[in-house]
Design a protein around this nucleic acid. Sequence first.
DNA 1: TTGTACGCGTTATCAT
DNA 2: ATGATAACGCGTACAA
Lengths: 336, 336
Amino acid sequence: MTIYDISKKAGVSIATVSRVLNGSPKVKEATRKKIMDIIEENEYTPNSSARAMGLKAMRTVGILCADSSDIFLAKAVYYLEQNLQAAGYESILCCTGYNLDTRKNYVNLILSKKVDALILVGSNFIGEAEQENQYIKDVSAKVPVMILNASYHHDNVYCILCDDMNSMYRAASEMYDSGIHDILYLYKALSYSGHKKLDGFKAAMENKKVKGYEKLILRIPEEVSGLENIADFVSDYATKDHRFHGVIAADDELGIAAVKYGQKNGLSIPGDLSVIGYNNSMLTECSTPELTSIDNQLETLSECLVSTLIGVLSGREMPQKTVFSGSLVKRKTTDF
Amino acid sequence: MTIYDISKKAGVSIATVSRVLNGSPKVKEATRKKIMDIIEENEYTPNSSARAMGLKAMRTVGILCADSSDIFLAKAVYYLEQNLQAAGYESILCCTGYNLDTRKNYVNLILSKKVDALILVGSNFIGEAEQENQYIKDVSAKVPVMILNASYHHDNVYCILCDDMNSMYRAASEMYDSGIHDILYLYKALSYSGHKKLDGFKAAMENKKVKGYEKLILRIPEEVSGLENIADFVSDYATKDHRFHGVIAADDELGIAAVKYGQKNGLSIPGDLSVIGYNNSMLTECSTPELTSIDNQLETLSECLVSTLIGVLSGREMPQKTVFSGSLVKRKTTDF
DNA sequence: TTGTACGCGTTATCAT
DNA sequence: ATGATAACGCGTACAA
């Protein structure tokens, strides 16, 4: 079934069929109806490749993320897909892994599909060295680039993110104010948002004039994986003359590992040890006791990202950076 | 950059460029190299829409799933995307929600993108009533349909699944043999695989000649959500004269809810209560104690699905149904 | 209001 | 080994 077949059956030209298809007002109601009927009857749907060739746009956006099975990224991808769908856009998903180099190849790959825009999900797309981000500049010359959860200023690049620094700052301050002055900060990788969180923690400690808080910043090495092993790693650390009555983790997984550390060492939670995670994912509920966590408004971010994107694609002027603020969701691993 | 631009710069015709692009052997090595250089130099990549028009295929497959943020489905989508990518296929993802009706619309929608095949992820795409599955038959007339984790026999429909019934049968039998004869079966919805699991449980109980096991099959109503509430629901049930020393759940979430039930009621785990989950997801590690769970080999299934699909698209004869068997991964909620 | 004819970037079939 | 050219299905000036 092509537009030609339909036009023949309807006894009109393809132009008229095309007009009906694209909702042009300049078609007589009678002919429109007739054509519509024939279209329905034959279950005709326009070939999107052919359509994409004529137009310059595909009504498709490329979504890039490191690993769509990551509990955080999966949620983001889901929300994005839903919102794009609703806006009449199709999305093609591409998982790149965490290596920055292979990433650039993926970007080219996905660009060759002539997507109308690119969405980078997760702050791990931004490198620390300015030169690492050259590829973003390159892409943005061709299509708008949307970044979820990281900030990078450049023309045609739009960022929607949660103010991780501030959220972390407030959470750490609140824990301090509740009387816990020795807080362990747990993290794994320093992506863009990873940095922000750590900065927020440091700022809070500085502000409270906590001495020697730097010694209570612990990075879990990449090779230590599995909650059990992370908990052991923390136990080791605690043994080496590090004392703390609170833990703030850069994600919920690490938070739960901290809870497990406490349990292994006979600490009561939150009595002897308070724990705060990050992301407010479903993992918080799985933990026993349930994990207090910082909510980064993922759903709101995703919605905002898509509506900004639609605006950009429609040629409207849109804010290059939109920041939401997170909130602390209190559960059973804290008592303030 | 188009193929014309390249051909001009190389001083050849577009036909030759096309041959180089598609790896035709009938090109002189010198010209090939010359053309390749120019292609690299200009970062030219063929327009995939135009390409799709010439060929009949899009080298794109549609992936349909209810909710890509579901921890189980997300993993599946991830593996599928990775494997398709590796095979040179692009994937477009579409989340349909759990309603069967809206689903059919999505199928049509995604079909209009002229995908080469459709992958249905999750057994909830198969309805109980034969008539509910008409839409699958319809689609399969146009493109091959691959189903992950459900079985549905029809021409041009290929199923790759884990033998949930057998896995469940073996797990239940093993729990019984360890001395636990009163086992509560916990489930939420009866999708295709949900049925299979329940059947496996029943078969095991029948085989062991357990009397009145039907009373220990508990369905958690849709409206009871949140681990805490599910745990309370189970507590209620236990109060009403139902005794059990083991729980087998249809997924890990319910399994963790069962663990929480035990903890709320002062039961030692696995001493007083043994628990087995299903899916062997990352949630198993989050639980305390860590959850024993049935692994359904998702990664293997996904790989197999893609390779079968490639076979089908290449016109090779492929098995319509491939079944793998699951395995019990023992952790801390069981002691057998 | 409707129709004609061209262009979009490829692939594939003929010739040469 | 290479080139010319006809599809592929659609959108859209421009004409009528």
